[in-house]
Each structure stands twice: as C-alpha cells, then as structure tokens.
Design a binder for these strands. Structure first.
Length: 273
DNA sequence: GCGACAG
DNA sequence: ATCTTGTCGC
C-alpha cells in the first residue's frame, strides 16, 4: 500500500483498511467458536477442607492446579525487539513452576481493537511448544491482562489454543453505557450484598463482566471478563484463588519476569555500544 | 472543543 | 507498551 492509500488519521475513523476488513472476518469466525460457559475437566480446589478419611470417587476428579500467565513486552529502545513470555503457577502455593519466553520481532502492527492479531500468534507458539514437550505443567486455565472488550486477546487466544482463559482489566473501559460514575453508584448500592463483586451490564443488556475488589485492603477494583470455556462465575472464583495482591499472581509474575528480561536485554545492548 | 479509544 | 528512586505507609 503506497501513496494515496494511507489511512485517514485526521478525520473520524470510519474508514477501514483491507487488512482490518480481513481481521474482522477472522474475528467473526473465531467468535463462532467461542464457548462462554464452563467447559473443562477440572474442579476448583476445596479451601481448607481436607478429608483424609473418606475418599470417594467424586473426590478423585482432577483439581485445578496449574494456572498460566502470558504477556508480550516491548523494548523501548529497540522497536524490533519484543518478548513473548509464558509462566505457570501452582494454584496452591502461587509459585512459578514453569517459565519460558521467546525473542520476537513484531511484524503485525498494533491497531486498536486488533491487539490479538499482533500478540496471539506468538503466545500461541509458546503454548504449543510447551504442549509438544509434554510438560506436566501445562496450564488448565489462564488469566490474561486485557480490558473488558467484546472479543479481545483473551477470547482470541483462548479459541486458538483451545485453552480456558479469563480477561483481567485494571481499568474500566467506557463502552455500552458503562461509566466510572455508574460503577461507583453500583458499588454503593451493592455495598451490603455480601458479595465483593458487582456484575457489569451495559445499556444493551450485554454482560461485560464483573468489577471485583481483589484484596481486602484494595479500593480500586479489577475487572474480570469472560475469555474461552469459563463462565463469569467460575472466572471470579479462579481469580480470587490467585489474588495475593490486587493483580492476580499469574499476571503479576509474568510482568515481573518481563521487566527482568527487558532489563537484561537493555544491559546487553548497552555493552555492545 | 479536546482527549481517550487494549499494546 | 516502554522509561523510573526513593519514599511513604501498613
């Protein structure tokens, strides 16, 4: 695409390029494969209760043990350098039991609304590499740091990897009538409901997700949305299990590893000039 | 009117 | 996204 075919960035963005048109088509086909209810073999771990005496068949079901965290981090100084990172945490100890990363050169541009086309393929590679190696730590579910969106990275990667995923946002996006003040009012009206989360329903009636106070002391909520193969109710329970601080541990740990890797990379660059 | 609009 | 030290507070 050369002269005269550039995207109009000055006026209202009603124009869409050929690539984004293709992406919309792909997105629509992935949407059809999205499963919005619980569809997995494991059950949530029992909290505290340990019956050593009576072990029934029901109790021998697979229990959730490994929760994944993925991220793509970009080097500021070197635009051709990025890292895709995967960690897996043991849900009981919240310790990292597996980590892997790959150096990637971003080729797909970042276009708002289409982040998944840039990041899902490289994250999928890490998951498939892990699956191919028959690692016993392969995640049973993975939260991803994404805001509440209709069909974002969490859904996109979930479908591609056929992995149960959960969307985690740190901020509220003003869509479908959801506003900061509206949320504030909703929280106040539900203050004595005994729940530590509120369900976010848009003007259209669509359930976008939930806002949850993830830690006792935290004022600012996190925003939980459906990814693939996990219902909102289950998503909330899984997130609660992994919240030591406001941001769920799998995401916090993958971000910590990301900053370490970027730091080392920048030191390495510094030595060679 | 301006800014913000996942990274 | 990426860049950041110390500092305040529980």
């Amino acid at each position: 695409m050369y002269g005269g075919e550039e995207e109009d960035t000055t006026s209202a963005s009603t124009s869409t390029s050929d690539t984004t048109q293709d992406w919309i088509t792909i997105q629509d086909s992935l949407k059809k494969r999205l499963i919005t209810e619980d569809d997995f073999a494991w059950k949530l771990p029992q909290h505290g209760i340990k019956s050593s005496s009576s072990v029934t068949f029901a109790e021998q079901e697979e229990v959730l043990k490994y929760v994944g965290g993925v991220d793509v981090s970009y080097s500021k100084e070197e635009p051709s350098v990025a890292f895709a990172i995967l960690v897996v945490l043991d849900v009981e100890s919240l310790q990292v039991v597996y980590h892997d990363f790959s150096l990637v050169t971003p080729t797909v541009p970042y276009i708002p609304g289409f982040l998944a086309f840039r990041e899902a393929p490289i994250l999928l590679q890490l998951l498939e590499k892990m699956k191919d190696s028959s690692s016993s730590f392969y995640p049973q579910v993975s939260p991803l740091l994404v805001p509440l969106l209709g069909f974002g990275l969490a859904c996109h990667l979930g479908v591609l990897a056929d992995l149960p995923t959960i969307g985690i946002g740190k901020n509220l996006h003003h869509v479908d009538g959801l506003t900061h003040t509206g949320l504030r009012q909703l929280i106040e009206s539900k203050e004595n409901s005994g729940e530590d989360f509120v369900t976010l329903i848009g003007r259209s009636g669509f359930i976008w997700g939930a806002a949850m106070r993830s830690t006792e002391g935290s004022v600012k909520p996190i925003f939980i949305s459906i990814g693939h193969r996990v219902s909102l109710g289950t998503a909330i329970k899984v997130v609660k299990l992994t919240c030591k601080y406001r941001v769920p541990e799998p995401i916090r740990q993958v971000r910590l590893l990301a900053s370490e890797i970027l730091k080392l990379n920048s030191i390495f660059n510094g030595l060679s000039r």
